[in-house]
C-alpha cells in the first residue's frame, strides 16, 4: 500500500473541502465522496453554544492513519483524506472532513461511511458540549 494515498491532518485551523478533494483527485478517478461533519445547534433539545475538541495528538494521528490504511485494503478506493479539527468550534463549523475517491462511486460511499464510523470508535479525540447553563463531555457517562 502506498502511503501517499492517505492524507491525515489534525489541526486548529479551518478545514478545507477543496484541499481534501484536490488530494484525492486523479485521472483514473470516477467519483469523489466527502463526509463533512458540522457542529449542530442542539443536543436532546438543549441549545449548544459551542464545542471544545481535545485530542491525544500523536495517537489520534496514528489511529486516523490506521483507518486510512484499513479503508484502502477494504474498499476499491484510490485515495483518502481524513482531516480533523481541534479547539473551540461554533455552531455550523466543521470539525471533520473525510474524502475518498474511487473509479466507481459505491466504494467511495462505503469507504466514507466506514471511516467516520471507525473514527468515532477509535480515534482519541473528545468533545465537550457547552450549553448556556453548563457543559458536558459527550458520551462520557451514562
Amino acid at each position: 500500500m502506498e502511503k501517499n494515498n492517505i492524507d491525515i491532518k489534525l489541526t486548529q485551523e479551518i478545514l478545507s473541502l477543496d484541499i481534501c478533494s484536490a488530494f484525492v483527485g486523479a485521472d483514473d478517478v470516477g467519483g469523489i465522496v466527502s463526509f463533512v461533519g458540522t457542529v449542530r445547534n442542539q443536543t436532546k433539545g438543549k441549545s449548544v453554544l459551542k464545542l471544545d475538541f481535545e485530542a491525544y495528538e500523536p495517537m489520534a494521528i496514528s489511529e486516523m492513519r490506521k483507518i486510512g490504511e484499513q479503508v484502502l485494503l477494504k474498499f476499491e478506493i484510490k485515495k483518502i483524506a481524513i482531516h480533523h479539527r481541534t479547539g473551540t468550534l461554533k455552531v455550523g463549523e466543521v470539525p471533520v472532513i473525510i474524502t475518498a475517491s474511487s473509479a466507481h462511486r459505491k466504494a467511495a460511499f462505503e469507504a466514507c461511511q466506514f471511516a467516520i464510523d471507525t473514527l468515532k470508535e477509535t480515534v482519541p479525540i473528545w468533545k465537550k458540549e457547552i450549553f448556556e447553563d453548563g457543559e458536558i463531555w459527550v458520551s462520557a457517562t451514562p
Binding site: G37, M59, L119, W126, W137, V138, S139
Partner: peptide, 10 residues
C-alpha cells in the same frame, strides 16, 4: 500511560 474515556470525535 493514557486514560481513554469514551471518544467523541467527528
Amino acid at each position: 500511560i493514557v486514560l481513554v474515556p469514551p471518544v467523541s470525535g467527528g
